[in-house]
Amino acid sequence: MTGFATPLTGYLLVAALLFAIGLAGALTRRNAILVLIGIELMLNAANLNLIAFWRYLPHPEALTGMIFAIFSIAVAAAEAAVGLGLVISIHRHAHTTDLDEMNRMKG
């Protein structure tokens, strides 16, 4: 159906595209929550790479990539919780989530 030599190529390209979209979101949006959404997209793209390599490398029964992805999901969840807590805290002090206006570390 495609010209790719292995299905892994398709997954890697989708993950690369998703990573670039997340990076673009994190770099271009003004709202701090949208930046966190972009970071989540990038972490998920990395997870897709891990799972795809786990599936197509020999010896998937070693579970290395799968376990790596599961730990990555756990760390990303912790990151999201702390990041959104920080955004809410900053909003309470500065009454804004606009990154262009956040130019001081001291409230």
Partner: peptide, 29 residues
Amino acid sequence: WGAGLAISAAVFAVLGWVVLQSEAGLPRE
């Protein structure tokens, strides 16, 4: 936003180029 868009487009170009270049060596279980 222009600089951010350029950076992410460059990142995607590099990643896609690397994937397509190394396609012959990718595992195919």
